[in-house]
Amino acid sequence: MTEFATFGCEACCAEDALVAREHHHSYSGVRIEKMIQDDSHFIVSVKRCELCSQAFVSVFTEYVDWAASNDAQYRTVLPVTDAEAADLMEGRLTPHQAGALGRGRRYLQSDWPSDADDPTVYWSGGVFEVREGY
């Protein structure tokens, strides 16, 4: 994806989205630097890669499936600059404004709708909407 600005290392921003997701989910891969919002259906945090120190904003949204109890879950992991990470952690940039940072960058997306057996994991790019779950 050469049209996007380059961030991170071969582990946290691996070309294969599944490899990158595995690194982000491993205990030694990416650590939480600061929890920005921690609600039951909406979690936003700033994370940092243990290998290259790349900062990320992670946005998790869950929608309760009241009928079948199979809640839809969506996660976006966007690389951010150190200045943007600081702005998020200090409240100068709200979680809902984070989606605008996606312009010109690729981000790791995991979509797990209620009717799917497994999540779809892929790289995407561009501005994205940050919404709270319910």
Rank of each mutant, 00 (worst) to 15 (best):
R105A: 00
A86I: 03
L51P: 00
G91E: 11
E62I: 12
G102P: 01
T76A: 03
E84G: 01
E50I: 07
F60P: 02
E50L: 09
G91V: 09
A55F: 14
V64E: 15
C52F: 06
Q109N: 03
G133M: 12
D115C: 07
P113R: 06
D82S: 14
R106K: 06
F60R: 15
R48E: 13
D38W: 08
V80H: 04
T76Y: 00
F42H: 03
V46I: 10
V121S: 04
L78Q: 01
S45C: 09
V44D: 00
L78F: 04
D38M: 10
Q37S: 11
L78W: 04
A67Y: 08
L78R: 00
Y134A: 08
L78V: 01
V121I: 11
E33T: 08
V127P: 04
G126S: 11
W66D: 14
K47Q: 11
R105N: 05
V130A: 05
R106Y: 01
P79G: 04
Q109S: 10
F56E: 02
V64W: 09
D82V: 12
L78T: 03
T120V: 14
G125V: 02
S53L: 13
K34Y: 06
I43R: 14
C52L: 05
V64P: 01
S40D: 14
Q54A: 09
F42V: 04
Q54V: 02
E33C: 07
Y134P: 05
F128K: 08
K47A: 11
F56Y: 15
F128P: 03
T94H: 14
L78D: 01
P113T: 09
S124I: 04
T81R: 08
E132Y: 00
V77I: 12
Y107G: 02
S58M: 07
N70D: 14
P95R: 01
P79L: 00
E129S: 14
Q37V: 15
A116T: 13
D115K: 10
W66P: 00
E50D: 12
D65Y: 06
T81N: 10
T76G: 03
M89K: 08
A100M: 11
V44S: 03
R92W: 11
L88S: 03
V46F: 05
A98L: 08
